[in-house]
Write a protein that binds this DNA or RNA. Structure first.
Lengths: 348, 348
DNA sequence: CTGAAAGCGCTTACAG
DNA sequence: CTGAAAGCGCTTACAG
């Protein structure tokens, strides 16, 4: 039964209770193999009896490092990053490490604060899904000896491991799907910021799918201000204004959010989606799924990304010098839903 | 410029560099008001110059407590809990505290592990959204002096603060909405487990709305095995089998997931939702929104819950003895979408 | 306002 | 396998 003291038991109380030294208790906790079965059992019984819970702060300080890994994602409201967290957590647990999770809510300053927090906590390593170049933040961690692995961001050949999705393939899968459904006039709706790597790559992939048809399919693109639903609606307005015979009949919006706005507006303008126009997004972002028809999209394996990133990180933690930085590319996959199902093929 | 040493700078290096004692550096960090402007600036310059980052483990140990709050939620894939985290984080930051987030993935053992982890980390307090009675876990924290506030779970009058949504009102709002749309034969679809408080309360609220019509609206209910999409589909099958004139024309599923399965199956059986039958869910769970029509639902103010819970926690941390436990009830609100819009009123 | 010193609770060589 | 002791990096009374 728990001791009725007014102060919580500490390691020395356990030692006293079990009749051993503090060092032995600590060994039971950290290197049980070094202690005889008998002593171990006695110590564990005392721990149980007193309700002892080790102070992780003291432990990390004395051991010179914590057994936690930090994960900082762009935004927890994006379900992809929740998947990343699940994958990373599972892999971490398998190795006896704890995952600390923080979301940056699309705010670069909050991201910096999160990284700083994990820096202060002296995490054993950091998984970072940055919203843009964050080499400064990463440098600080590295100086302290904490490896960093980037998720969903490719820093280019250099100092860090990264795990990214094959965005060119994302675009290709989208294009291929629409073409297979019978669309022959494709539109790519992207954001105006050309520096966003994923946007450029997805466009390239889509073009590849179009090229493969050897001219049977037309391609055009439309740039909107940003990747919000509002911009999607603007794009829809412009396209709908054109006649049914010249406007695109297959649309790839570069994000689900954009696609959601596009479909909502297109529908309200009287165009039948997907009957007259198949529309799809990219990301499989569940928070953007509230469209009038369910959205076909190209999804990423978020969990796989998280698990891969954690593996790379642990590898580097385990062997900081021998480690070679890697770039892991995860393949996307198509998720077919109603926004492209039931498109009426042109009977030309 | 950062010092080119092979070992990261510590507080004593900063003291040396600034020509002050370690105590003074610590004061600059923790009680800047106690240090003269001039000294403060000098110390800060040294911190900057050396790239010093304080070790939070050592700090917490010496100070006898950390400046972090833990939040353990049932499942991060449920968007409501992401909202809770956002609200809690914002409130925590305003008070200079950090929020540590952990998701339990619907697994009670993982929940226990998460709570233990925060216990070891000696968090200043814990916000817990438990999946069921967790008084044991809570007791451990309390023994160590960490207050606990429950979120989305009402433990009954007792030892802890809690923040919950008014689930009776959830049911009432749902019923009221359907009745206003012209439905006169309501169905409540709930899970078979009567011990789930929210289910019972939502049913009560719905009944209240029905009672208010003084007999003009019929009420019935259907219990299914659990709250999955599959069970929703099963329920739809049973209802659809009845003729259009006797079956319900307004349905409240106790969760969005259930509603999603219900609608999908009902539609595929040839019943027009919402034309012949208006259907709605409860929760506003974005991950369940992938239905063929967008789902009307009753939502909770997750952010508000998170913020309220954090406030209660901080209040108790600030005044452990004077603190009175409270039960904060957050009002739900209706989110109208397509699954109830366009219902054809019976013209009897 | 500033400094010297004790101590937070644990871990880890080091001897036995 | 076990114990005594130094030390992890900071904070906080306590004197000055």
């Amino acid at each position: 039964m728990p001791r009725e003291s007014d102060t919580p038991p500490k390691l020395r109380d356990v030692a006293l209770h079990a009749g051993v030294s503090m060092g032995t208790v600590s060994h039971v906790l950290n290197h049980p193999g070094k202690v005889s079965q008998k002593t171990r059992d006695r110590v564990r019984a005392s721990i149980e009896a007193l309700g002892f819970v080790r102070d992780a702060n003291a432990s990390s300080l004395a051991a010179g490092g914590s057994r936690s890994i930090g994960l900082v994602v762009i935004d927890l409201a994006n379900s992809m990053f929740v998947d990343v967290a699940l994958g990373a957590q599972q892999t971490a647990r398998e190795r006896g490490l704890n995952l600390l999770l923080a979301g940056s809510q699309d705010d670069f300053e909050l991201q910096a604060a999160n990284v700083d927090f994990f820096d202060e906590a002296r995490v054993a390593g950091l998984l970072l899904a940055p919203m843009r170049d964050s080499s400064e933040q990463i440098q600080k961690l590295r100086k302290r000896g904490s490896p960093v692995v980037l998720v969903n961001y490719d820093p280019g050949p250099g100092d860090d491991c990264c795990v990214v999705v094959d965005n060119e393939q994302v675009g290709y899968l989208a294009g291929r799907h629409l073409i297979d459904e019978g669309c022959d006039r494709l539109l790519f709706v992207g954001g105006a910021d050309p520096s966003l790597q994923p946007v450029a790559l997805r466009r390239e992939g889509l073009r590849r799918a179009v090229r493969e048809t050897q001219g049977a399919v037309r391609f055009e693109e439309l740039r909107v201000a940003d990747l919000t639903e509002a911009s999607g609606a603007v794009a829809a307005g412009r396209i709908a204004a054109r006649g049914p015979d010249t406007r695109p009949n297959g649309v790839v919006a570069v994000t689900d959010t954009l696609a959601a706005g596009f479909i909502a507006q297109m529908t309200s303008l009287g165009v039948d989606v997907p009957g007259e126009m198949a529309v799809m997004g990219c990301d499989d972002n569940s928070t953007a799924a509230v469209t009038s028809v369910t959205l076909t999209t190209v999804a990423m394996h978020g969990q796989r990304m998280g698990a891969a990133a954690m593996s790379l990180l642990l590898e580097e933690i385990g062997d900081p010098d021998g480690h070679l930085h890697q770039r892991v590319v995860v393949e996307p996959h198509l998720v077919r839903r109603l926004s492209t199902t039931g498109f009426r093929r042109p009977t030309a």
